[in-house]
Every structure is written in C-alpha cells, then in structure tokens.
Simulated assay, not measured.
Amino acid sequence: MKYDSVFKPGLFAGETHVVTGGGSGIGRCIAHELAALGAHVAIVGRKAEKLDAVAAEIEEDGGSVSRHVLDIREEDDVKRVVGEILAGTGGVHGLVNNAGGQFPSPLAGISAKGFETVVRTNLTGGFLVARELFNQHMNKRGGNIVNIIADMWEGMPGMGHSGAARAGMLNLTQTAAVEWAPAGVRVNAVAPGWVASSGLDTYTDPFVKSMIPRLKDSVPLKRLATEAEVSSAVCFLLSPGAAFITGDCIRVDGGAPCNSRMYPLQDHDRSKPYNGFHRYKAPASLVGDDG
C-alpha cells in the first residue's frame, strides 16, 4: 500500500521539502504525503530513533528522505543544520514548520521557565528555522513556508502558553508574507483543531485524558480531524494551485470556533473523514471510540 493522496502524482517531483517535527503525528503524515508526491523530504526532530523509524517507512514505500537531529530552539544548531540540508540537497523548495509541544496547565500554575519553554518551542524555534532558510537560500531562490499553529481563536484555557505562542506565529506568518514577498516566498499557516493523532497520547493527566473522547461533542462536524486532512491543507498551500495565497491561514477544525455554545449541536454521522495515510494508527486514547 502507498499513501492515497488527493493530489496528482509527481506534484512535488524534483523538489526538497523540510518538515520539522517529522518523527511523529501530523509531521510524520505530512512527510509521507510529500514523499509520495515525489519530493525529497528532510525530516527534522529532536529524537533520532523517531526520525529513523519514519525514514525507514518512507524508504520502504519508495520515497526519498533524509533525517536531521535538531532542537529548533537552539539558534547555532539551526544555522548549522539548515546549512547541512542545503549542502546535501542543493536547495529547499518548501518548509513545514510543524514542530511543537505543550503541557496542560491553568495560567496561574505556569512558571516563567515553563511558559518560556513552550513559547520557544512553538514560536521562537519556527522563526529560527524560517529565518535561516530565508537568509541562506530562499531570499535568492524563492520558496514556500507553511507554519502549523492551532485553534486558538477564542483563547486557549488550560494551555494559555501554547495559545499565546500560536497566535504569535500567525502574526509572524502575516509579517513574513509581506517582508519576504519580493523574494518570491509565500508564507501561510494551517490551524488544526482536534486531530486524532498520536499527540493525544502525550497527555497523561487523568482529567485531560477523560476529556479526549468527548472533544468531538463541541465540533459541528461531530468528529476529530484525521492527520491526512491536515496534510492535505499543507500540500495545497505548498502547491502551484496556491500561488496567489500568502499571509493566510487555513483552519482544519470542523467548524469548532463557529460553535457559539448558544446553538445546540445535533448529533450526526454525516461528516465522513478522509484518510489517505496508509500507515495511520489511531491514538490509544481514542481506541474503542469512533473518533
């Protein structure tokens, strides 16, 4: 079996795309789809074993991939690894700033260190990777950048540090879209809502775990997104079909922010998910639930 993408075969043939956080979850899925569409994919992450596993999958499926261990929060390391990727590939056509992470906590319980760590992971690190790719390559050759943010439109109670960082990344996206347009660089964002991805299994707090199966109840489409549905939005923004789109954000959230809480949502099963990712496995937190 191979990735069943909705896009034409060979869409990214001859191109190189960088995916941060490519060792698991949504990033893993995006890397697989890009490779299935002909791209050489440079996957970046902090844990070599995760990158090795995804690289082996992509190679087994006939794709082209390289893996690069990097903590995107470390400026000197970002400069070095971006240089290595460029030296090894001759150029980069697209960047998917997917790496991120957070922990649940009310604002009153977040230390300065905890807050700063989440901001560095979800905002500063993405900025550093984008800046280096621009300064080292895209300022002369052009390219596309897609920043993965989150559904933070009405605040993010319980994860205020992440919400602040993601909102900052959206503003950074809009700013970069203007400043880097003369170089032929488009910069956009994708904001996933609740996704049935392995990231759900990183939350160990009993209360949070108990909430996960009920997340769909607040979504008008009455389900969670698949990883492939997020990847499709990313691939579209990287494609020539999005050539006149920059500084924008595609929400992949099932309409959750549109729910006013005053209008009763009706139960239904009319929204049928798309899942072209042949290696997808449901997170343990949703096993036994229809997701």
Rank of each mutant, 00 (worst) to 15 (best):
F103K: 07
K47L: 13
P273F: 01
G27Y: 05
F207V: 15
G38I: 06
P213Q: 01
R223E: 01
L86C: 02
G291T: 14
E60C: 00
E49D: 15
D52W: 00
E49A: 15
P257V: 00
L70Q: 00
S111L: 09
G114C: 11
S105F: 05
V178F: 11
L95A: 07
Y3D: 04
D253A: 12
G168C: 09
P213F: 05
A53L: 09
G143M: 06
P9K: 10
A177D: 07
E229W: 04
D201C: 00
M152K: 03
S5K: 05
V195P: 00
V119S: 03
L11I: 07
A87K: 14
S218H: 06
T246P: 07
A191W: 05
V187F: 10
T173L: 05
R28F: 13
N98H: 06
G155K: 08
S232H: 06
S260M: 07
A87W: 02
C258F: 14
G101Q: 07
P206N: 10
R80M: 08
A36Y: 05
D61E: 10
D290L: 11
Y280I: 10
L86R: 10
V19I: 04
L86T: 09
D205R: 03
L200D: 05
G163W: 08
K209P: 04
D205C: 04
L133Q: 07
N259R: 02
R261N: 14
A191R: 12
G158W: 08
P220K: 00
M159S: 13
V6T: 13
V118Y: 01
V129D: 09
Q102L: 11
P213N: 07
I145M: 11
V119G: 00
A242V: 07
V234R: 03
T175P: 03
V195A: 02
R270G: 09
S105E: 14
E132L: 03
P106M: 11
A167N: 12
D217G: 00
N97M: 04
D77Q: 15
L70V: 08
E59H: 06
M156V: 03
E132I: 09
K281T: 15
V6L: 14
G114A: 11
K2D: 10
V78F: 06
R131M: 11
R270I: 10
A191G: 05
R80V: 07
G63L: 02
D61V: 00
P220E: 02
A164W: 10
A225Q: 13
R186Q: 01
G100F: 08
I26P: 01
E74L: 10
E74R: 14
A31H: 07
L200H: 12
Q266S: 10
P206Q: 04
L37A: 06
G14V: 05
I148K: 11
E60K: 15
P283Y: 13
G158I: 00
L34I: 02
P106I: 09
R80H: 08
A48E: 12
A176I: 09
G83R: 00
L237Q: 01
E33R: 11
L237R: 05
L215T: 04
H268W: 06
D4H: 14
